[in-house]
Design a protein around this nucleic acid. Structure first.
Length: 514
RNA sequence: GCAGCUGUAGCUCAGUUGGUUAGAGCACCAGAUUGUGGAUCUGGGGGUCGGUGGUUCGAGUCCACCCAGCUGUACCA
């Protein structure tokens, strides 16, 4: 026996690469329903669906050509047989830019499109952050108007409400990167590297709080594990000025109040004024059509995608608080974002094409909706299982399955090789509502046994002895073979009525019926 | 990338100052039970103790290096 053990060798581990996961039926079903809702809202705004491939040429997606040292920096890449680099898409915006550039002549401008699908990032995963996740985007390409920016924000707000998220439980926070540029000009900080550090520090406001941001703008910050992050090195006066800008959105008031505060901070900077002007135009439009600051607010701490956005930037946040695993109450956080990217198409054509869009993080949003119990879709009900008692009669069992299917009842014949006990166990594990049993005795009498597995499970608790369990045959009825479909239907109806009554008493009947 | 923590069965873990053939619970399979899911009892399968090297008569246990995972942080186009 020792010999056998040695022969086995190393087994492969049944494992997933980090940051990837399997998705069970219930989540798939719910995600489909969610996407259908969002798609409906976008379609009603006139955004047509487009699907692009998962794989693009690396240079078409961006400037991230894999190099020898670190071939997979951020994006999953590999070489085709002709040695050209291919990459898995890391968002849905870069492929859209490629599509628009490739079809520029044919497309109506502005071109309005929506896309939904998986994207991939070769980054370190964290809680709720995966290396494959789903996004749903809507973009307007070919319009420089702030009205287009306002529109995608309004559309995102509509989509959240269509999904059942209450007004007040979400907010779209809007900023304009030109304003920050203006503020930095004002404090005499034009150094590009320092500017990036400053932007990143600001981006951490909601996660780490104002104290941490202050530290990161100045000398630097020591984190929990004792690791030190170098700061932007601003002096005290500069830090004060930048913080005043960052916190201009926190002091409350409406969009006009925030704009007024920002205007003072920007001073004479032309670029800053341009940003203010764009935000003002958005505000006027939003006011005129009735999207208040409870839905779309101005917040200078929103930064986002640094090299890619050229003007307005948006971030959607769920504002209700949830308990994490340790019981702490935390904000649910960001479920989407976007902004204006006027230079992306120009990478291909050399011709400036203004564009703006919004991207919903479908996976994050799914987690939120699950928490809010807004997912009405559930996985397909498990099938009725027809037991195979007599291998010579499989055609008879198959006929029962066909009859049930014809009546639109999901049904399957047991496909294993085990005996009756194992078949019952299978039906139970499977979550089957009913087992259909027809042995020799039943056949001679022209009947079948229907076993209500859900009711039977309830009764099992009260039965202690094996003998009683076997002999009482809980929740099992004999019905004429000819009435199979009708009686199965009855039993299923009773089960779903019970389930509804049960869930109503459990939740207080708060859910609207379909 | 940087820092801290952790690696023993499919899962969760125990394993004393280094000492026979490395254990438990859960899960899985079978039997008790001629044709009934649960409960109970009995039996069974499943381990390169993360890897390599070292110290030792002897290493799951001690040392060194490496690898992986988790958490924080950085990066996130």
């Amino acid at each position: 026996m020792g010999k056998d053990k040695k022969k086995k060798g190393a087994r492969p581990k049944a494992r997933l690469p980090k940051g990837f996961r399997d998705i069970p039926a219930a989540e798939l079903e719910a995600t489909r329903a969610m996407l259908e809702t969002v798609r409906g809202v976008y379609a009603s705004y006139g955004f047509a669906e487009l699907e692009t491939p998962f794989i693009e040429y690396a240079d078409a997606l961006g400037k991230f050509l894999p190099d020898q040292d670190r071939p997979n920096e951020g994006v999953f890449s590999f070489q085709d047989e002709d040695e050209q680099w291919l990459s898995l898409r890391y968002d849905l915006t870069a492929p859209l830019a490629r599509y628009v550039a490739a079809n520029y002549d044919r497309l109506p401008k502005p071109f309005r499109s929506m896309r939904a699908g998986w994207v991939f990032r070769n980054e370190k995963p964290g809680p709720g952050r995966y290396r494959q996740f789903m996004q749903c985007d809507a973009d307007t390409v070919g319009s420089a108007s702030p009205l287009a920016d306002a529109e995608v924000c309004m559309m995102a707000a509509d989509a959240f409400e269509a999904l059942g998220i209450q007004r007040g439980d979400y907010v779209l926070r809007v900023n304009n990167r030109k304003i920050l540029d203006g503020v930095l000009e004002g404090i005499g900080q034009a150094d590009e590297a320092a500017r990036l550090t400053i932007l990143r520090a600001i981006d951490k406001l909601d996660r780490l709080g104002p104290e941490a941001v202050r530290a990161l703008l100045g000398e630097g910050r020591l984190d929990e594990s004792g690791d030190f992050t170098k700061g932007a090195g601003l002096d005290e006066e500069q830090v004060r000025h930048v913080m005043a800008f960052v916190e201009a959105g926190l002091e409350g008031g409406g969009r006009a109040d925030v704009l007024a505060r920002l205007e003072r901070l920007v001073g004479a900077s032309a670029r800053g004024r341009e940003g203010i002007e764009e935000l003002s135009e958005m505000a006027a439009f939003l006011d005129a059509v009735g999207y208040g600051p409870d839905r779309i607010a101005f917040d200078p701490s929103v930064v986002r995608g640094l090299d890619y956005y050229t003007g307005p930037v948006f971030e959607a946040e769920l504002t209700f608080r949830v308990e994490d695993e340790d019981g702490n109450r935390v904000r649910f956080g960001s479920v989407g974002g976007g902004g204006r990217y006027d230079d992306l198409v120009a990478r291909f054509t050399g011709q400036k094409v203004p564009a703006t869009g919004f991207s919903v993080g479908v996976s994050r949003l799914y987690a939120a909706l699950e928490y809010l119990k807004k997912l009405q879709a559930q996985a397909q009900p498990a099938p009725v299982v027809v037991l195979v008692m007599d291998r010579d009669r499989v055609a008879d069992y198959w006929r029962m399955v066909e009859e049930l299917r014809a009546a639109n009842i999901a049904a399957e014949m047991y496909m294993g090789t085990s005996g009756m006990k194992a078949q019952m166990k299978y039906a139970d594990r499977r979550g089957a509502p009913i087992a259909v049993i027809e042995g020799e005795d039943e056949r001679q009498q022209g009947i079948v046994q229907l076993k209500d597995l859900i009711e039977g499970r309830r009764k099992a608790a009260a039965i202690a002895s094996r003998r009683e369990w076997v002999e009482s045959r809980p929740a099992q009825v004999a019905v004429p073979r000819a009435e199979l479909v009708a009686r199965v239907r009855e039993m299923l109806d009773r089960q779903s009525a019970d389930a509804e009554a049960g869930s109503e008493t459990a939740t207080g009947g708060g859910e609207a019926s379909a």
